[in-house]
Design a protein around this nucleic acid. Structure first.
Length: 504
RNA sequence: GGGUCGGUAGCUCAGUCGGUAGAGCAGCGGACUUUUAAUCCGUUGGUCGAGAGUUCGAAUCUCUCCCGACCCA
């Protein structure tokens, strides 16, 4: 590591306290007595599986035909008594109680065991039985300390509630809070479900560059980095779109990619600088077929992650099983804000005036479509609780989408809103290279005029289109926001394992 | 960037009018062979986010800064 930009982080831990000192002393004794941190205990059972298989067996049955088990996990609770004790062991699958009696494990081991701490990782060999209160429990014949926990765990009853610490030390959150474990397990199941659905539908999973010489595929500020050997500026990708469409040009007719995008923006309950998108492209599809496909995909993901398509989000029912609504921008405003008339909503001057009243600050060069969209965002968007496709976006805000054959001012594009949030964005792709070149030029002009989020002119992408992109539909789905819905999480940080934080 | 709220023991939280810093859990010592947020007795532990100011005296009042949450842009 000779890089000058290497962060200096050689500080010794400064937060030792008497509890840690005590545990460190125990570790010292452990080292003296033999092999600390052994790796010869072979677990054969998990808590969840034992409870599943033997949860219904009564005490006599377990006694008549003893079940030998080997479990391992973290000590979460301990109830030490004179000559016999109980601990609760936690592994990924759940918790199981262990009964440790001096007579069974031997006096020396029992004396050591009494000084083990909550948080220690322990291996237990024994047989199953039922206690007086009928709890399935492992009666230990051997207990072995596998890994010492030097730092005290959060309080056993309340767990870790400090939201900042839960984000900064996610491992502690995961040890302590079952809700958090559920959220990330559900996230994993959901992504797996989406992959299965896509592969089953004949899509090919691909990986396109994360570092782009020209950032493209979305309107956003990129992170900039530098490639030393090539001595060139590079941008972390804001979207994979232009690369995926190059693959469709190349004959990969159905492709998808699940990966991170990076946008150089602030953090908020709904924004993290890096976030996960699933984008897919299908040759000979259009935005209408993609809407049908997306509906099916979301239902499938919900069923796999939660077991149901009907669930609650923040106290309100969300039903993905019903057909999703499809409305134009103007229709959506009129449906959710009936105080506005169609005459007003098709009057650019009226919209401009009203938006200024709302302190929305429309730019001078905005056309009717862009004004309508901005007005929609100010009024109706947040009210789209039920899944709703908003369709037919204006050309001026859709530089990569195909124009409608019936109205050259609009594109064949949709965005999907659920609980008032944008979840997906898709369109019939613009495959006319000359039209695309003009749109890029318009974007480049906007960039010159100061719009930092406007797109760059990507000459290689135009060249690719000149070889012929078949008529194609494409769509991007915000994975984090979808996980928020399925796990009833109010903030995107709750569904990202290690969200971005300032240095503390 | 602006506004509101918060940061006290390892964790969860109290802290009155400005007057020596508190509890529960965890830890340590003791009792206890069917407990389960075990119980009982005793006990250790604090840069009150950081710094400055006001004051005889600041966790408490004022200012600046740091970190976080929410709302707004």
């Amino acid at each position: 590591m000779t890089d000058a930009a290497q962060p200096q982080n050689n500080e010794l831990p400064q937060d030792e306290n008497h509890i840690i000192a005590e545990r460190r002393a125990k570790l010292g004794k452990w080292r003296e007595s033999g092999t600390a941190y052994p790796n010869d205990f072979k677990r054969e059972n998990t808590a969840g599986k034992l409870l599943e298989v033997y949860g219904e067996k009564d005490g006599e049955t377990l006694e008549a035909t003893p079940v030998e088990v080997k479990v391992a996990g973290r000590v979460m609770l301990k109830r030490i008594m004179g000559k016999a004790s109980f601990i609760s062991l936690q592994d990924l699958s759940g918790r199981i109680q262990v009964y440790v009696a001096k007579d069974a494990v031997g006096e020396d081991t029992y004396t050591d065991f009494k000084h083990w701490d909550i948080g220690d990782i322990v291996g237990v060999t024994g047989t199953l039985f039922r206690t007086k209160t009928n709890e399935l429990t492992v009666k230990a014949s051997e207990v072995k300390l596998l890994s010492k926990c030097l730092r005290p765990l959060p309080e056993k009853f309340h767990g870790l509630t400090d939201i900042e610490q839960r984000y900064r030390q996610r491992y502690l959150d995961l040890i302590t809070n079952e809700d958090s474990r559920f959220t990330f397990l559900a996230r994993s199941r959901m992504i797996q479900s989406i992959r299965n659905y896509m592969v089953h539908a004949g899509f090919l999973e691909v990986e396109t560059p994360m570092m782009h010489p020209i950032p493209g595929g979305a309107s956003a500020k990129p992170f900039v980095t530098h490639h030393n050997a090539l001595d060139m500026e590079m941008f972390l990708r804001i979207a994979p779109e232009l690369y995926l469409k190059r693959l469709v040009v190349g004959g990969f007719e159905k492709v998808f990619e699940v990966n991170r995008n990076f946008r150089n923006e602030g953090v908020s309950p709904r924004h993290n600088p890096e976030f996960t998108m699933m984008e897919f492209y299908e040759a000979y599809a259009d935005y209408r077929t993609l809407m049908d496909f997306t509906e099916g995909l979301l239902r499938h993901a919900a069923r796999d992650a939660l077991g149901t398509e009907v669930f609650e989000y923040q106290g309100r029912v969300l039903d993905l099983s019903k057909p999703f609504h499809r409305l134009t921008i103007v229709q959506a405003v009129m449906k959710h804000c009936p105080e506005y008339t169609e005459a007003q909503l098709t009057d650019a001057a009226w919209l401009r005036h009203k938006l200024r009243e709302m302190k929305a600050d429309p730019r001078g060069d905005m056309g009717l479509g862009a004004l309508q969209l901005m007005f929609f965002e100010e009024t109706a968007e947040a009210q789209l609780w039920e899944p709703t496709f908003i369709i037919d976006y204006p050309v001026e805000v859709s530089p990569l989408a195909r124009k409608s054959d019936s109205d050259p001012e609009i594109t064949e594009r949709f965005e999907l809103f659920i609980v008032g949030r944008e979840i997906a964005n898709g369109f019939s792709e613009l495959n006319d290279p000359e039209d695309q070149a003009e749109r890029f030029l318009a974007q480049a002009k906007a960039k010159d005029a100061g719009d930092e989020e406007a797109m760059f002119y990507d000459a290689d992408y135009i060249r690719a289109l000149e070889y012929g992109l078949p008529p194609t539909g494409g769509c991007g789905i915000g994975i984090d926001r979808l996980v928020m819905l399925l796990t009833d999480s109010p903030a995107i940080r709750d569904v990202i394992l290690f969200p971005h934080m300032r240095k503390d």
